[in-house]
Every structure is written in structure tokens, then in C-alpha cells.
Design a protein around this nucleic acid. Structure first.
Length: 487
RNA sequence: GCCCCCGUCGUCUAGCGGCCCAGGACAUCGCCCUUUCACGGCGAAGAUCAGGGGUUCGAAUCCCCUCGGGGGUACCA
């Protein structure tokens, strides 16, 4: 069996979105499962659409997710270079072969003519395809065009009435009649190859064994097959992976909100969660397993279990999974992560983090976190004097003003005299106070929670009070007492 | 228009002729735990397996048609 060599061939025309990356990941999994190679090749043949920073973004995304590559433009490899813009000579040589063998021809048609042609065909509901205007050019005519400086493209001459068949790894047998294909462009007028040409030549040159790409490539596969045949190259196996759709079932785009995978990083998602969520879009390990380690993915990845239908991206499930992974983080990792987002969020607001307090509160918020970004707001009251506490919020506990005042007053006395802010002692004592007040835990503890944190939902109250400490506790009780002072 | 792919709960999916009047997960809704919110546990609801024809003793699973969705039809990838 020949070595498995698969590739991820992004073009640096934008930030990779979850669909691109999922495709990359499936390739990676397949390589790792088979002890093969995972190659990154940059398809930068569209000089007009290059986006600054896109190249870096692609590698940042892979690195963030822990997807490593064996060969690539940055690290080289036995089939360098891995940037298509640096492989122009290789394409030229192949084009020469195609031109000489009559499989390709030069086309001098202007874009205007092509646009007009297409419009006519659309209007008359005819097939939209190139009319082979330049196929019949004589060598003298071609010379004339070239002498007068006309630019040209090279087109592939599609044979008529042939049936092209592939045995797709995920879709099974798919066939096309070449009569429905038009003479596609191989080389653009700027001398750069099109995707069709470059990808076939490079996949062959780099000994790619399996072409695993998104389903949107399926329609152009017959062109590639034809090229392999004309060039006399052995064909790789094809596998067209299901696409990932937006909630409206259309191809993922900017309209669908966060589209770049890196945005998920910035939004507080863990790479492990994103990976796990992503792998389940179009693949499953069995009928019930949802949380899967990367090791297990590698060990059990099988193209046979890749599904055919496109998958809709469901942010709810990602959120749930993110929570699962946050909870599975060990204390210290979570602490570091939370600290980082807090530093960021508090920057410029004069809020100072206290490492000791942070270390105590982090384990308590872990089960409450679906996203790292939720943390700063959730624990802000530990680090700032100005909490969002007001009469309306306090009153939601269901006690009238007098009851509130009395409860706070009694609490104040207790806290003032208390010398041991330990949660178990606090719990015993405060429950006792609650009884003496003839209140209910729900009301009384709710009151204290509101007053001490400015929030109606927090980690367990006694933990919170212990961490807050005597000073802050008294300060906040006093502030609340002021609000309910009987005039 | 034409070509190609796809079609199981709202969503991700299991299923590859009898184990399925369809299993798991997210979301939803209850209940339990409980000082709140979560987590966790338990449970409910939710899919005439897109529809219609076949084949078969038997079909979500095989075949055909229809419908629906998506993708492609660029000197973009």
C-alpha cells in the first residue's frame, strides 16, 4: 500500500472558517490514523484576491487547534516549494505539453465578449459554456494576435461525449458526461494557473494519495480527472466531504456571524471544544459518544463513517461543549485562562485583580461557565468597590423595607462581631439569624446575596462571603442599610 | 436554465433487510438536589424515517418517480 499523503490547500484570500478548518482536520485525522503525511500547500494563484494577513491567519488557526503539518511553505519538505506562486515554471512545462498534444489551446477572447456571450446564453436559456471561438484559430491568426500584443488564456479542450467516472470515497460512484463541461481556463492572462490546473499538477507532483476536500469541489472533479488523463498522471482517490452550512442552510459566510475560526478563539472558546464540536459535523464514532479526545479521534477516524449530508452549524451545541471542556480543565489551567480574560476585560477600567481571590473563586465559577468570556462579569464584584446594588434589586427578594432593614441590621451586628469568616461557621450562624428573623433561607440569603454582590445569581453565598472578607462585607451592608434607612 | 450532490426529531447524528411503531446528544419543558444561578441526576415532549410507487414473507435501510434543500456553472478558490 502506498503512503497516505493528504493535503490542506487553502488560498490566502481570507480567514479560514469552520468549514475550511474542518476539512483540514479530517485530512489531518486521516493522515495520523494511517501514519501518513499531512501537507499544507498554499494556493495563492489569484493575485487579485490575496488578503494581507490571511497567510498568517491560516497557520495561526491550525496552531491554535493543535493541527500540525509535516510539509508546508514555512517548513518546506521534499516537494518544495509549497507556495503555488513559486511553482509557476512547473505549470508552464505542463501547459506546454497540453498545448502540443492538442489538449489545450490559446484563447484571445476578451472579457467583454465572454460576458456578452454568457448573457446571450442566459437569456436564451441555452447552456452556459464557452463557444470555442478560438479553438479554430489558425497558427497565423494566433501569431497575429500575439504580435499585436493581445493577451490570452489557455483553455482545456474538453473531449466530447465522454463519460467520466470517479469512485468517491464518501459518495460512491459519480459520473459526468463531458458534453456538459465547457473549455475551462488553465492559465489566466496574467500567466498564473487556475486552481484546476495547479491543483492537479501539484497533487501529482507532491504524490498526494487522497484528495479530501469539501463537496463544493465535486462539480469540478471531472475537469481534474480529464487533466490527469491528458497529462498521463495517476489519479489520487477523491473524497468529497460534506459542507458546513449556516443556520439558514446556505454556505457559511460573513452573514452568519463569527465566520473565522480565530474569532471563536477571541470569543472565549477552547480549542479542544471547537475541535470536538467540529469533528462531529459529518463524522461520528458510534451511536452515543459526544466527548472524544483527539487521541481517540485519531485512533478511530474512518472515512467510512463520514456522512454525506451537509451539516448545519449549531452554536448551542458548541456552547454546551465549551462548558464541558471548561469543566474538564484542571484548576490551574482554568485559573490562567480566567486570569487572562479578566486582565483583558478589566484593562482601562481601573479594576485590579487579586490573585489570591481569583484562585479561590475560579473553581466556584467553573461549573457556571459556558464561555471564558463570561468570567470577568461574573466575578467583578470581588475586585471593585462599585457594585451594581440598588433598592429595586434588593427588594426583589420579597421582603418589605422594614424587614429588609431589620435583617440587614442584625446581619451587620453579626458580621461586626464575627472574628472568623469561615464558610461553615458563617453558614451555621446565618441560618440561625434567618430563623430568628422568622424569614426563609430563600429570602434572607437572597437579600444578602443581592446586597453583597449586586447580583441575584452567584456561587454559593457562604463561599462568597468568606472570600469577600469582613471589611467588604460590612462596607456593602452599610451601603445597603443607608438605602433603607427609615427617615 | 443546465449539471452534480443530498434528504432520519428544531439541530448534530446512530441505523447499512427483521434487534427500530427508530437509539444518543444539543436545545426545550418538568421533577430531584438546593440559599440563588449553574453543574449533576431523573423524566417528558419531539421524526407518519421528504412524499408516492415498487422489490421482498419483511424496508428508514434496495430500485424508480416526484418534491424539497444545497453546490457548481468565473481569466475565484
Amino acid at each position: 500500500m502506498t503512503e497516505v499523503r493528504v493535503r490542506y490547500a487553502p488560498s490566502p484570500t481570507g480567514q479560514p472558517h469552520i468549514g475550511n478548518v474542518r476539512t483540514a482536520f479530517f485530512n489531518w485525522l486521516y493522515a495520523r490514523n494511517n501514519g501518513g503525511k499531512f501537507i499544507v500547500r498554499m494556493e495563492d494563484t489569484d493575485q487579485e484576491r490575496l488578503v494581507e494577513g490571511a497567510y498568517e491567519g491560516i497557520f495561526d488557526a491550525l496552531k491554535w487547534l493543535g493541527i500540525d503539518w509535516d510539509e508546508g511553505p514555512d517548513i518546506g519538505g521534499p516537494y518544495s516549494p509549497y507556495m503555488q506562486s513559486e511553482r509557476l515554471k512547473i505549470y508552464d512545462a505542463n501547459v506546454e505539453v497540453l498545448l502540443n498534444s492538442g489538449h489545450a489551446y490559446k484563447c484571445f477572447c476578451t472579457r467583454d465578449r465572454l460576458t456578452k456571450l454568457r448573457k446571450e446564453q442566459t437569456d436564451s436559456k441555452a447552456d452556459i459554456k464557452y463557444d470555442r471561438h478560438c479553438l479554430s484559430l489558425t497558427s497565423t491568426q494566433i501569431k497575429e494576435h500575439i504580435n499585436s500584443g493581445d493577451t490570452y488564456v489557455v483553455r482545456y479542450r474538453v473531449p466530447s461525449s465522454e463519460i467520466v467516472v470517479i469512485d468517491d470515497i464518501v459518495r460512491g460512484q459519480v459520473e459526468w458526461n463531458t458534453d456538459f463541461l465547457d473549455d475551462f481556463v488553465l492559465v489566466k492572462s496574467d500567466g498564473y494557473p487556475t486552481y484546476h490546473l495547479a491543483n492537479v499538477i501539484d497533487d501529482h507532483a507532491m504524490k498526494i494519495s487522497h484528495v479530501l476536500r469539501a463537496e463544493e469541489w465535486l462539480p469540478s472533479t471531472p475537469r481534474h480527472v480529464l487533466l490527469y488523463q491528458s497529462l498521463g498522471y495517476e489519479m489520487p482517490k477523491f473524497g468529497h466531504l460534506p459542507m458546513i452550512l449556516g443556520p439558514d442552510r446556505s454556505k457559511l459566510s460573513k452573514r452568519h456571524g463569527a465566520t473565522s475560526i480565530l474569532e471563536y478563539r477571541d470569543l472565549g472558546y477552547l480549542p479542544s471544544a471547537v475541535i470536538n464540536f467540529m469533528v462531529l459535523l459529518g463524522w461520528s464514532i458510534d451511536d452515543h459518544t459526544e466527548i472524544i479526545s483527539v487521541e481517540d479521534m485519531v485512533a478511530s477516524f474512518d472515512l467510512k463513517r463520514v456522512g454525506k449530508p451537509a451539516a448545519v452549524f449549531d452554536i448551542d451545541k458548541l456552547n454546551w461543549m465549551n462548558g464541558m471542556y471548561i469543566r474538564s480543565l484542571d484548576n490551574n489551567d482554568l485559573l490562567v485562562a480566567v486570569k487572562n480574560v479578566c486582565i483583558d476585560a478589566y484593562k482601562g477600567r481601573g479594576i485590579l485583580l487579586d490573585d489570591e481571590i481569583l484562585a479561590k473563586i475560579t473553581p466556584l465559577i467553573a461549573p457556571r461557565l459556558k464561555n471564558l468570556m463570561d468570567a470577568p462579569e461574573m466575578i467583578e464584584y470581588f475586585f471593585t468597590q462599585e457594585i451594581d446594588m440598588n433598592k429595586d434589586l434588593i427588594s426583589t427578594v420579597g421582603m418589605d423595607d422594614e424587614e429588609i432593614y431589620n435583617a440587614l441590621f442584625m446581619s451587620r451586628q453579626y458580621f461586626l462581631e464575627s472574628s472568623n469568616f469561615n464558610k461553615s461557621i458563617l453558614e451555621v450562624d446565618l441560618r440561625d439569624i434567618c430563623t430568628r428573623l422568622e424569614s426563609s433561607p430563600r429570602k434572607y440569603f437572597g437579600l444578602l446575596r443581592n446586597v453583597l454582590t449586586g447580583k441575584s445569581a452567584t456561587p454559593p453565598l457562604f463561599d462568597v462571603i468568606e472570600i469577600l472578607g469582613k471589611n467588604v462585607t460590612l462596607l456593602r451592608i452599610d451601603a445597603a442599610l443607608d438605602l433603607f434607612k427609615i427617615n
